[in-house]
């Protein structure tokens, strides 16, 4: 039997690492993309030692959309049929940190949203004729409501969630699952120095993600309680929401 082939974009990120490890322990073939060459090669050796049957890496900055076709092409070259593509890269800034730096604000949107749309679309097209596969993207619970402390980040995640909902309708009949992963705060380097209540471990979130991909789930809140928290948050009237400080 051919081993599972998995593409991970943003492979050195805190959530992508344990997900990739889970696939490595199943003997998967992995194609990894990240910006930092040294961290990427460390990740690749780690996954090989943990049982991956083959690991290929590519160093690129996702902001360089001119290279996106090349990325998809290289991933196809390694995997043949792509069983799973996980798009996991992202950056976090509170609104306050970028409020007076509109260029930085737009850069955040480009990294978290524009580049993700471009890659998801290109991978979708490349996988169209496979008849099977999963396109999984990490968004956030922060994408559901606009909040004064986090609205650029929230908007970038909302844009992706919206896009994925549409893609899902298009790809479902083709046998391809489009999974929107919405984690709450996760204990990863992205949240370093930002203490949070209800913080989850990356390992727990990764277990949920792998299970959701296995089951063909199309929307995942992780950990599970965020499904209920967000059900309530969605009901908060805007006139109250706009007065909330957080």
């Amino acid at each position: 039997m051919k081993s599972l082939s998995v593409v991970v974009i943003g492979a050195t990120s805190g959530i992508a690492q344990p997900v990739a490890r889970a696939y490595a322990s199943r003997g998967a073939t992995l194609f990894l993309l990240a910006r930092n060459a040294e961290a990427l090669s460390t990740t690749a050796s780690d996954l090989l030692a943990r049982g991956a049957s083959r690991v290929e890496t590519m160093v690129a900055d996702v902001q360089d959309s001119a290279r996106h076709d090349e990325i998809v092409h290289a991933a196809k070259g390694t995997c043949g049929t792509i069983d799973v593509v996980l798009i996991a890269h992202g950056i976090l800034r509170n609104q306050q940190e970028i409020d007076h730096d509109v260029d930085e604000m737009l850069r955040l949107f480009e990294v978290n949203a524009t580049s993700v749309l471009s890659l998801a679309q290109r991978f979708g097209l490349a996988m169209e004729s496979q008849g099977a596969g999963t396109i999984a993207v990490i968004t956030s619970v922060a994408g559901e409501r606009g909040r004064r402390s986090l609205y650029t980040y929230g908007a970038s995640k909302a844009a992706v969630s919206h896009f994925l909902a549409g893609m899902r309708g298009r790809y479902k009949p083709l046998g391809i699952n489009v999974l929107d992963i919405r984690p709450g705060p996760v204990d990863t380097p992205m949240l370093a120095g930002r203490p949070q209540p209800l913080i989850a471990t990356a390992d727990a979130v990764a277990r949920d993600i792998v299970k959701a991909i296995d089951r063909g789930t199309w929307l995942l809140y992780t950990p599970w309680y965020w499904r209920f928290v967000m059900a309530i948050v969605r009901l908060i009237p805007e006139r109250i929401m706009m007065r909330l400080k957080y």
Partner: peptide, 15 residues
Amino acid sequence: RCDRILSFDRQTGVI
């Protein structure tokens, strides 16, 4: 967090 395996030789048992 620094818990990556850099190499593991399954024949010689050096990790």
